[in-house]
Structures are given as structure tokens and as C-alpha cells.
Design a protein around this nucleic acid. Sequence first.
RNA 1: UGGGGUGUAGCCAAGUGGUAAGGCACGGGACUUUGACUCCCGCAUUCGCAGGUUCAAAUCCUGCCAUCCCAGCCA
Length: 579
Amino acid sequence: MNHDREDKNTRIPAVVYGVTPEEEVTTDNEINHFIRDMIEEDMGPGGRYDGLSVHTRFPPEPNGFLHIGHAKAIVIDFGMAKIFNGLCNLRMDDTNPVKEDESFVRAIKDDIHWLGYDWDERFFHASDFFEEIYKGAEELIEKGFAFVCEQTAEEVREYRGTLTTPGKNSPWRDRPKEESLDLFRRMRQGEFPEGRYTLRAKIDMESGNMNLRDPVIYRIQFSHHHRTGDDWCIYPMYDFAHPINDALEGITHSLCSLEFEDHRPLYDWVVSHVTLPAKPRQVEFARLDISYTVMSKRKLRSLVEEGLVDGWDDPRLPTLCGLRRRGYTPRAIRDFTERNGVSKVPSMVDIRFLEHCLREDLNERAPRAMAVLDPVKLTITNYPEGLEERFTVANLPGQEDAGTHDITFSRHLLIEREDFEEDPPKKYHRLYPGNHVRLRGAYIVHCTGCKKDEAGNVIEVLAEYDPETKGGTAREGQKVRGTIHWLDEETAVPAEVRLYDHLFTVEAPDEDERDYHELLNPDSLQAIQAFVEPWLLDDRSLVGYQFMRLGYFIHDSQDNGRDHLVFNRSVPLKDSYKP
RNA sequence: UGGGGUGUAGCCAAGUGGUAAGGCACGGGACUUUGACUCCCGCAUUCGCAGGUUCAAAUCCUGCCAUCCCAGCCA
């Protein structure tokens, strides 16, 4: 057994987007679901595990990056342990060396830490227990519950039968156990080529459950394992290894997704036929799906490999690293998964709920700033040329300890093009000739007109300010319906802003029969040249900013330089304005 | 008559024999130096369908329907 003691060093660095250093994993959500009830009963008086403490595990296969679907499992696995004052292990399910790689191990650990969970020293690999698992296989052979089979993969498939017809026994099923034992040991010694033999559990070829039709539990594979190197040339199958790993780690509740439901009889078979120190229990729940995106490892991989997105951490992807780069916070993700609940109903959650959870978190802690995405000039015609005023504004209105920063004001400003209409629709209360509007934090101005080019496009908006309204405070009795954001043209800093939309144009791309390439949203990324407050040149909020009236944005973690600011829009603000 | 699951609002989801929680979305209003936030109000006479038991059924019984997963020497 090989605990990774250096693991303590893999804590992600203190400065990581989405989480503030002193932040703790807490929840205000009421966690109530059938798994909690079941555990409660199992641990209670007379229950299955009366007297033991809850022990769960999160067992990813290190062959890809974690996505928000995994986050649900992580929240459940670590969350249940926490609620019941138990423990949760992290285990790399590495029983198939041809698919797995050490590089993923690191990324997986970082993502889990980022989400706010920790496994202390309980970091395992399925491969830590290869010897014990092997012993279990020998035990099965000795008891007559397993045999070495010589059927080819093709023959195994034929003999397995179909969903509606029973299978047939392998001709090697009744091979004497001494012979099986000898062959199995020689398999381990590397005497036979891949595919020549397999070890199969002797259960029931006529079972309606395909998993019980003498499943292969060991296969020969001459691949280099990322951890055990070339020590082994036979590897246990998931169905055999998993229950044994669970038992050896002292897991009480082995929580997994619905598709393993009909593996449970096999899980239980292994637990009762192999001598083990504990009897873990498998419980299944529905995995998480989200609208307008894909969650399958295969599709995510091909999006990355075909260059359709900018790597595994593309902000449009549902991967945890992608969400992190997008500006999602662990708190929002945890909140989202908890509030979704846990059930056995295959579900497709509306992505707008995820967005809601992010806004709810960021609204409370993202500093406010101003940015103009589609600028047009605003000239304050009665403000002296060359004069500059400085205003101090709160980072987070209403929260004094969040600090302040300064903004400058002058005759030449930048505003959002859509905040001026020469001929406004009804109920429009932004700038239009004759209207009073507040420039947030500065002054109330009175729009006097605009200048246009030959083509009739507005190139400059004109207004006069009211010196009596400094700071944006209205005169006695004065009511100003519109407040807009703005930037001082003199001090505004150019920045690239990346606006994201759904990666797919349909709600359920995974269920669509069309090739998913056809379903990609061509406008999922729109990069524009915008302007932001100079303050953002040096400031780095770990939870990003709210660009007022626009949305939440965060410095891109990859592409920012001192002279090249890049912001990702995490999520736009809600907007109930209907022209 | 393969086996195993699941059906409560547009999307999640409580509910476990006493007369349909909550959230998201949506619609309306109040407030507002963000058309944000916040706050009010509205949103299932009905729980996949049909029978049955009961004073009483989303909850119990029977039948049906729909839908998901399983035929890797993947996990």
C-alpha cells in the first residue's frame, strides 16, 4: 500500500481565481435526500453500520479533466462525510493503464482543492491494492468461483447471448481449479500474450443481468502503468477491483451514478465471495446534466483536440478549469449542486440556474467598476477643457470594508452607444435630447443633442452638467430616472473583453441525433475592444468585478499582460428592460 | 413476460394515508446613484394513464403507458 505522503504539497496556491484565501466551505442549504436518509439509517441503532463512522470516497479515473458533473459527485461524497462527521478518500481509479496518465492526477487534485475539499492523507490509487486484489482473485479460483477462460473476445461476446436470450457456458468453465490457478499465476508471470486468457467470475450465464454472465475480472495487458510501471501485465476490471478497493479503504457508502445500478449485484457478489475486512454498500444517484452544453468525456475531448475551443480550460466548457477561468466561484458551484438536490431522476438542469447561483455569489462580493463595451463620445459642453476631477467610489456599495477606489471625470467621456437615442422609444430613460441622466458617481447631466457623420451615425453625444449635483446627488425634489455608467476618455484603459454564449444552439446536444458539430453556436465567443477603469490595470480581484449594468467579468488567467488587459465575461447581469 | 431504474409545473425538487414546500424560469408591482440587487404579488383543483381500497390517495393495490441504462478483455 502506497500512500502518497508528498500529497500535502499539492494544495493549490493561495492566489487562485474564484476563491479568497480565508474562505471556508460552508453551506446554508438544507441537505436532505434519499442518500442522507439511507446513511442515517445505516449508522443508527440496529443499522447496517451501527457503531461505525461514515466513510465515502471520490474515485475518478485519471484519464481526463473534471467537469461540473463530477462536482456534483464530489459535493455528495465529501459533503455526506462532512455532515456525518466521517471521512472521504480520494482515489484514482487506475485499473486500465492504456487510458490513464499521471498528468490528469495533478489536475484532478487541483480541481478538487479548488472546489474546497480535502482528503488529508487519504489519497489512494486502485493500483495501491493490486496485490490484494490479485489475492482475492486467487481466493475466488480456489473456492471454485472463478476460472481461466481461453475464449477469444469474439467468442465471449457470442456466448454472452443478447439482452433477451440467455448466454451459454464457456467450455472452460469447469476447468479444474488447480489448472485455473496455475494458468492465472502464469498469466501474471507474463507467459501469455494479450487476449490469450482471461479470468472470469463463475456466476450465471443465463442471468437477465448481463453483468452477471460470467464477467471477465482480469485481463492481460502489457502496458506501462503510470504508477506500477511494468510490475503487472494483468489488470483487474473495474467491477472486480472497485468493491475490493472500497472494502480495503474501509468505505461504508460507495456512491456512484445511476448507470452502475445493474452492476450492484456484481458488486455485492464480489463483496460476499472474497474475504474482505468490510462490507461496503453501493448507492446510486442520477448524474448531473446541464442544458446547452455537453458533459461526455468523448465530446469534450474532441472539442479540445479539434481546436474548436481553446483547450480544456476554455471558458465555454463545463470543465472545472474552464469554469474557473470563466470566473465561476467554487461557492457558486457548490451552491448550485446542493440546491439541485439528489435523486434518481435523470435530470437536465437549466443552465440559467447555474448562472443565477453565480450572480447571487458575485453580487455580494465582486467589486464594482465601470467599463464601456461599445463606446461613443460624450462631451460635457459646459465643463472646462483640461479640468480633471477625482471622485472616490466604494468598491462595494454598502460594504465599507471592501474599500474604495478613485475615478476621474473630465469634459470628454465615453459612454455606451446604446445609452443614447436621438429618437427614444417609450419608457427609455437614458440619454436623449432634453433628458436628465445621472452619470454614476459624478454628476447629473442634461442631454442637448449629438453630432453625426455623413452617414448619419452618431459620433458624439452632447450634454451639460449640473455642478450642484456633484457625486450624482440629485437636487432637492429632483427625480432622475436614468443612471448610466461612463469612463473618462483621458484615463480609460483599452481592454479586450471576451463575451461568451452557450457553446451549443440546442438545449440537449447530447440527445440530438445530428452531428454535434452542426449544433455548435458560431457566436459562442465574441472578443471586443472595450475600455475599463485604469484601476483594473493593477488590481486583481480573485472573484472578478461587476462592470456596472453589464455583468460580472474577471481577468483572464492566461492571456493578461501589463499592456494587454483581457477580461472574460463570467455572466451578464439580468436585464428586464424591454424596448 | 430479458434484467434494472424513473415518471409531481417550462426546468430541478419536497412530499412516505389527512387534503400539493421551496428554488430557477416566467408575468405584474414597489424600491433604487446599476432597468442590477432587495421586497411584495401571481404562477399544479392536481401528482404518467385507467381502475380499485378508504371517511380521506401523489402516497396503498391492480393493470397499462412513457422514458432511461445494460450485450467492453472501458470506467
